[in-house]
Simulated assay, not measured.
Amino acid sequence: MRKIRIIISTLLFCSLAGYSQSLIRYAFTDFPSKNWKSASLMYVAGFADGHAELLSHHYYKFERTFPNANPQFWNPELSWVNKYKNSDPNQGPKYFGSTNAFVLATDGYHACKFVQKSAIVAALVIKIGEKKKFKYYIVDAVMYLFTYTLGFYTSYGLMYR
């Protein structure tokens, strides 16, 4: 019984090794040349997300790096009221769409989130209509996740040390 398990394991490993070889070749040779636009947009999306999260949770690091930045726009503790008339939520929206569709113009956090979402959508739209094997979509997804995470880490982890 043990010998059968060893034989099956060896055959399974060999077949996966042959299968993964084409995936690895795709990831390191074809992916950069075919997908650099989407990968770059995913990096931008991750960078914008990291920046938004840094503003929300570590504004003091942003302020230390950019001391002349307008805190009324960038500091979430102050900027959340920018969308309201006279900075008073009881007076309603400052202008049409300032609390929803055009909130990106009212503060830094929402501007960053708009860039993040726009970059993701653009990266996906570029890929619409591509015909390839499913396994290559998996490689694409892993690579896009990697570039998104790298962008996030660049802004959230490295830029404001």
Score class of each variant (00 low, 15 high):
Asn82Trp: 03
Lys83Cys: 05
Tyr84Met: 01
Lys85Gln: 06
Asn86Phe: 06
Asp88Leu: 02
Asp88Phe: 00
Asp88Tyr: 07
Pro89Lys: 12
Asn90Tyr: 05
Gly92Lys: 11
Lys94Trp: 07
Lys94Ser: 11
Lys94Val: 01
Lys94Asn: 13
Lys94Glu: 09
Tyr95Gln: 07
Phe96Ser: 10
Ser98Gln: 07
Thr99Glu: 13
Ala101Gly: 07
Ala101Pro: 03
Ala101Gln: 12
Ala101Met: 09
Val103Thr: 11
Leu104Cys: 07
Ala105Phe: 14
Thr106Met: 09
Asp107Phe: 01
Asp107Asn: 15
Gly108Asn: 01
Gly108Tyr: 00
His110Asp: 02
His110Leu: 03
Cys112Phe: 05
Lys113Phe: 05
Lys113Met: 12
Phe114Arg: 02
Val115Arg: 00
Val115Ala: 04
Gln116Trp: 05
Lys117Ala: 14
Ser118Pro: 01
Ser118Gln: 08
Ala119Phe: 00
Ile120Trp: 08
Ala123His: 00
Leu124Lys: 10
Ile126Leu: 14
Ile126Asp: 15
Lys127Pro: 04
Ile128Cys: 08
Ile128Pro: 00
Gly129His: 02
Gly129Asn: 05
Lys132Ala: 09
Lys133Pro: 05
Lys133Gly: 11
Lys133Met: 07
Lys135Asn: 15
Lys135Ile: 15
Lys135Phe: 12
Tyr136Thr: 06
Tyr136Glu: 11
Tyr137Met: 12
Tyr137Val: 13
Tyr137Ile: 13
Ile138Leu: 15
Asp140Leu: 04
Ala141Ser: 13
Ala141Thr: 14
Tyr144Gln: 14
Phe146Gln: 08
Phe146Leu: 12
